[in-house]
Design a binder for these strands. Structure first.
Lengths: 134, 134
DNA sequence: TTCTTATCCTACTAATATAATAGGAAAAGG
DNA sequence: CCTTTTCCTATTATATTAGTAGGATAAGAA
């Protein structure tokens, strides 16, 4: 697993929403990007991806913006990273959600090592929610 | 950490050398690539990188080839992966050997989570040697 | 000494991923 | 109906990944 700016920016935006969501209030993207100093146009894509994935909901127009689609305790770091950066596993051949064959598969002990790493990462990221981080 | 074919191929080659090195005998790259079905010309680069890094030694000409520069128990998986794919850490801002600032650094709990993952991966890969895998 | 076999080393290429920006359509509120 | 905001498509620049091509160089065999 290697994080790109997609996941990093997404997590920052989600944490901002988690903290500043006074009961269902919508927060505009410009507010998020100004306070966190993130590129607005780039963030539009990221928010859109999270919208389609059901992590946030949105409304257009004045007073429009975004809010979390679920409680912070129900959104895991794993969901976010899988959405933007794909597999948590170090190689595709040991990935549960994104399996693809690779050359190291015939090396049983090396594969086992990679699976142990995959298991550690996914259990850690699946049990950590926005609530834990905010 | 995400493995590319560089690290995967390198590890396969090193394991082949570990297994088939009858006391200091050199093994040609064509033998390695034929038996493991790896692209020869691509592997030349990989072997060259390992040569410069001191993981293998070589000799040219007939009867030439490669062999491990150290005992299998002294070459760790971490060395190989860092050489080809850089940081073991999931983000550069928590990397010990390849630190670079990133936007998530201000999020203390998220950073701590990433450091825990980094620590697990590096301790695992640093204590695993070719001897353990062969 | 010359031929063969291997590594050594530089250059090049094609495809994909990453990190954005540009510009306008659509909807909601004032 | 005007403004603000999301929605959505297209485009771009750079870097990374996964190779191939071709020749120089060294070592051993003939």
């Amino acid at each position: 697993m290697r994080l790109t700016t997609h996941s990093e920016y997404a997590l920052l935006a989600l944490l901002y929403l988690s903290r500043n969501a006074a009961k269902g209030e919508l927060i505009s993207l410009s507010r998020i990007t100004e306070e966190q100093k993130l590129p607005f146009k780039y963030m539009e894509h990221i928010m859109h991806t999270m919208l389609r994935a059901g992590l946030v909901t949105s409304s257009k127009g004045q007073k429009g913006g975004y809010k979390l689609a679920k409680k912070p305790g129900q959104i895991t770091v794993a969901q976010v990273i899988r959405l933007f950066d794909g597999p948590l596993a170090p190689v595709d051949s040991v990935s549960v959600h994104f399996y693809k064959p690779t050359v190291i598969e015939k090396e049983k002990k090396l594969t086992k090592l990679m699976k142990e790493i995959r298991d550690y990462i996914s259990s850690k990221l699946e049990k950590t929610t926005l609530k834990d981080l905010a």
